[in-house]
Each structure stands twice: as C-alpha cells, then as structure tokens.
Design a binder for these strands. Structure first.
Length: 455
RNA sequence: GGUGGCGUAGCCGAGUGGCUCAGGCAAGGGUCUGCAAAACCCUGGACGUGGGUUCAAUUCCCACCGCCACCUCCA
C-alpha cells in the first residue's frame, strides 16, 4: 500500500486508483521556449522515479507528460528570432527530450502538445459556456467565471475573498469581466499570433485549458494522479481543475507536487537568470550523479542543486560503482536481493516516495556487501550486491558504463607493465606508471584479486 | 498584507514522544597494502530561541526570531 501526500487532501492518504493494479498519471511538462535548466531535470527525475516505483511494485502505469507549445513566451521568442512558433517549439522540445534521454528518464506513454488538441479544448469551453460557467466578452475571448464554481481554491488553499482582495489592486481589470479573478479560456486572435477557428471567432486557447482537455481526452474521467512542480499549484492546477470539474467532469483523484530547485536560497528561474542548464550539469557531473543528488532529497522539499551537492553525489556514486566493479572482479555470483534490504527500501518508498530513506537502504547494502567480501564470503555478498543492482534499477539508475575509449588497450598495457614491475619489486617504475595514469584521470586499484582501473 | 512550508551536527539531508541508531559528503584515528587507492572498523559532534503539556520532547502546543515558496508566466 502506497501512501502519498495529496496536495488536495493536504495530508497523507492511501493512493487509490480507478482500476486495481493500474495507475494513470498526468504530469505537467515544460513550455518549450528555451533549453531546460536543472530544475526541469529534477522534476523530470522525480516523476520518473515515482512512475518506475509504481511499476516496480506491480502496477501497469500509463504516464502522460504534456508539452506546452503555444504560449506568450514562445510567440515572443519566435518573433524575436524571426522564426515560426512551431519551429522554435519543436527545436527546444527536441533538446528537452535529448537531455532527459541522457538522464535515463523514461519517455511518457503519450506526449500531448497543445496545438494538437485544440478541438477537445474548444469542446470543453463550449460545455463551460453551456453550463454558464464561462462567458464571452466580444473582441476579447471567453472567460471562466470563478464564482460559478464552488470548489475554487480548494487545491491551492485559497479563499475567494482573499483572491478578490488581491486582484484589481495589482493589474487593471477589464470592466466587462464578471469578477476580477475570472481568467481567459479562449483568447481572441491578435495579428501575428497563431490562431484557430472557434465558435467565438478565431483565436487561441487560454493558459490552463490545455491540461484540462488533454488529460481528460487521453486518460479519461477520474484519472488517478496529477503531478507537477509546486509552482503550478496556483493558478495553473487550480484553474485546470475548475475548468474540468466546472464542465461536469470527474477530474484527478490525487494531486502531488514536487519542490523547486533553489540557488543560494532563491528559486531557480529563467526570469532571474540564476540557472544552470541541465546540459552543463550533466556534462560536468554525469547523469547518474545528478539522479543520486535528486533522490537524496525528498521530492516535496526545496533543494539546492549546485556544484556542492552534485560533487558530493558524484563521490557517493563512486562508492557504489566501486562496489559493483569489485563484485564483478571477484566473481561474486548472481543472487536474490537480500529481503531485509528490500523491505527497508519498500517501507521508505511506500511512505510518500521516501527516496532518501530508500537510498539509505541501498548504501546499507553497499556496506554489507563490502564487509562480506572482506570476509571472503561471496555467498553472503551476493544477496547484497543483487539488492544494490536491483534497487538502483528500480530507481532508474542506468547500469555502470564500461570504461570505454580509444585508449583502453594502451591503458591495459600500461597496467600490465606496472603489474610486471611490481612483481619484480621495481616500485619506482610501478609508481611512475601510476602517476602517469593519474595525470590522465585514471585511478589504479590493487587488490588480492589483481589490479583494476577506472576513470 | 493573505496562504502554505521550513529552521537537525563542518556541508547535504531523513526521521521519531523514551530504545546504540537514518543515510551521503567532509574530518580524525585504526586495520589492510611495498606505498597508494579502494574497502572495513572506530570517533566526535544535532535537533533556531523562550515558554508550556508530559514521568519523559528534537518529536505535541503556544509565542518569538530567521528563511523560503505561492498570490503574475514558471518544473
């Protein structure tokens, strides 16, 4: 039984699904107008781990991750670059998936794009208008009437009275809106912007309608789990839910939200410029260290994800990799994952995807595997090594890359030469070779079972 | 101003009303090794401040201080 912290219930609840043994989930993806930064990477890893774990414990998971490809910033950026919105969005979406591939984030089962679902959005808007929950302002578009939907504010914990107080003070309000908090579901066409035909004239969808329409279209009524970054709770998810339920649909059963990446105590954001691109972080520390850094923090917490954290994660990862190399070198047989370790792992994960505790179980297995090998007990070691392999796989860590490269043969030859020198107790020559390799970033490890190296 | 959250050892970061306990990184001391590296063992140090509840609080309650997020597009 998996307990999750449900953002709507605002407490831990049992994850109940529409169909036993199956989980349908929808996670809000990025607006593709620029390259992804490490915050996008964190969110992607978080939901990848959740998806994999739900599958690992035997569920059939349908994972939908959308991409927003029509939006103000895309339009602005395309105009600036003198290209089409379509070309710009396609280009940055390709970068996004390429980086996630490096991270070993599984591709969603479906990737709906806003421009491909305009008709379902129009249908949904028409339902809202029919039910009196949305209304037309000539020349402007169609607006959702917040006060017509009683549940408004439940997800984000906001009261309508507070919202009304805040609105209007901030930006000038169109006098034709029934309430200052009403928001556009359909925006009338403007010159130079992409638009579509609709019952309310040409225009484009409003900010939040795409996710309401696409999630219902693909996953259907009352799908199980809706996720995203916690900066989307308001207004995006609140509005998304209001539109879907306002049109008479049963919407997501559970909501989960992941924490933001911070830089020096401030949220990482494109607008503040305090971001590191995901590509740079992966180039420097590697995708596995990135994944480790992410899972060592609970998904709902804010986290720093800079050189300090990534560097520490890279060191921790090395400890794991050293074990796996050692087990291979010493010929530890395949075994069944140690039940005690697996139980600890599952207990941590079952409680709101407690990946830090899950990693503690993995590191415990690492220590015990090494201890068993130190004692020469390969049978005992095999269960712990198997647990490490199995649990890392469950968390989406790709297996250790073999030390590849053009110079492998040359390095092997040097290592062999050093072995020979050591054999004849010519330690000066042996150390010379080791220094030479160290200068090339290669670490030598001697053991009773021979010498190995890694980069 | 409104709403929500956080403050744990050098750093990152879980967790719990009392039991030797997270875990990772770093530091110190050992074992092993030709020397290293790796590994294992040991060590130190924690729960923002002030009250309260309790036999017992880091854990519950209150106040205060500090920090953050959302309230506008945002993973």
């Amino acid at each position: 039984m998996v307990q999750i912290f449900d953002s709507l219930a605002k407490r831990d609840v049992e994850l109940t699904t529409r169909v036993d043994g199956a989980v349908s989930m929808y996670v809000c993806g990025p607006t593709v107008y620029d390259v992804p930064h490490v915050g996008h990477g964190r969110t992607a890893v978080v939901y990848d781990v959740i998806r994999r774990y739900l599958e690992w414990i035997g569920n059939d998971v349908t994972f939908v991750g959308n991409v927003t490809n029509v939006e103000d910033k895309i339009i602005a950026r395309a105009a600036q670059e003198g290209t089409s919105e379509r070309e710009l969005a396609d280009r940055y979406e390709a970068v996004y998936w390429a980086e996630l591939d490096r991270l070993n984030v599984g591709r969603p089962d479906a990737v709906p794009r806003a421009t491909e679902f305009v008709q379902p959005m129009i249908d949904l808007i028409a339902d809202l208008v029919d039910r009196g929950r949305a209304y037309v302002i000539e020349g402007e578009g169609v607006y959702f009437s917040v006060e017509s939907y009683p549940g408004y504010g439940d997800l984000s914990g906001r009261r309508l009275s507070d919202l009304l107080e805040g609105a209007g003070a901030r930006v000038e309000v169109d006098e034709r809106k029934r309430s200052p908090v009403d928001f556009a579901v359909w925006k009338a066409a403007k010159p130079g912007e992409p638009d579509w035909e609709s019952p309310w004239g040409r225009g484009r969808p409003g900010w939040h309608i795409e996710c309401s329409a696409m999630s219902l279209e693909i996953l259907g009524e009352s799908f199980d789990l809706h996720g995203g970054g916690d900066d989307l709770v308001f207004p995006h998810h609140e509005n998304e839910r209001a539109q879907a339920e306002g049109a008479g649909h049963a919407f997501a059963r559970h909501w989960i939200h992941s924490g933001m990446v911070m830089v020096g105590g401030e949220k990482m954001a494109k607008s503040t410029g305090n971001f590191t691109t995901l590509g740079d972080a992966l180039d420097q520390y590697g995708p596995r260290a990135f994944r480790l850094a992410v899972v060592q923090v609970h998904y709902r917490s804010q986290m720093e994800l800079t050189a300090t954290e990534l560097g520490a994660a890279a060191e921790g990862l090395l400890r794991i990799d050293n074990l796996l190399r050692r087990a291979a070198r010493e010929g530890v047989p395949d075994g069944t994952p140690d039940p005690g370790i697996v139980t600890g792992f599952r207990a941590a994960m079952d409680h709101d995807f407690g990946t830090p505790g899950a990693m503690a179980a993995v590191f415990d297995a690492v220590r015990r595997a090494n201890s068993a090998m130190d004692a020469g007990d390969h049978t005992a070691a095999s269960g712990f090594v198997a647990a490490v392999r199995s649990l890392l796989d469950a968390l989406g860590f790709p297996s250790v890359d073999a030390d590849a490269g053009d110079d492998v043969g040359e390095i092997d030859a040097l290592v062999a030469e050093r072995e020979a020198a050591r054999g004849s107790r010519d330690f000066a020559r042996a150390d010379e070779i080791r220094d030479e390799l160290a200068a090339r970033g290669i670490t030598i490890e001697d053991s009773a079972h021979g010498t190995t190296w890694h980069r």
